[in-house]
Design a protein around this nucleic acid. Sequence first.
DNA 1: GCCAACGTTGGC
DNA 2: GCCAACGTTGGC
Length: 159
Amino acid sequence: MRPLNHWLFKTEPGCFSFDDLKQRPDMTEPWDGVRNYQARNFLRDTIKQRDLVLFYHSNIPEPAIVGIAQVVREGYPDTTARDPNAEHFDPKSSPENPIWYMVDVRFVKPLITPVTLEQIKCNPLLADMPLVKRSRLSIQPVTPDQWNVILAMGETPFP
DNA sequence: GCCAACGTTGGC
DNA sequence: GCCAACGTTGGC
C-alpha cells in the first residue's frame, strides 16, 4: 500500500480551531480559503487520501501544534473562490479554471500535550521544518522523522 | 500594534 | 523579465 505522507496545516483558531473540527458533523471539514500557489500545489497534486495532518494554531500568543487530522477527500476545486461574498473570493477563478483547491480533513485526536512553536524551534531535530525556516507557508510537508519527534513531544501514541 | 519576511502586481 | 510598490502573514 502507498506509504502515507505527513503534513502540517495552519489555521488561526479564532477563524477555525481544532475544537471546531471536533464539533463538525462527522468531524470533517473542507480546508478552503488557501490562496498561495505553493500550498495550492500541495492540495491539488500531492496530498492524498488518508495522509496525516498536524493541526497548527497560528497567530496567537503561544502558537502550537494541537492535534492530528486525516485527509478524507483529495484535492478538488475550492468553490469559495467563486463566491463574491466569501472572504477569499478570487474573480479570476472559474469553473473551467478553478485556480484554487481544497481537501477535506477529519478529526483524529488531540495531542495530549500541545507542542509549541518555541519547543519546535529549540529542538535541533526539527530545525529543517518549514515552520522554522519559512513560517508563512500554510500547508507544509512533514517528514516521517519530524512526525515521530513531534508526536513523542506531544506524548501522544499514534496510531 | 509593530515589523520582518515573503508573495503578488503592474509599469516599463 | 525586472523590480518597486504594495499587501499579507504571523511571531513577538
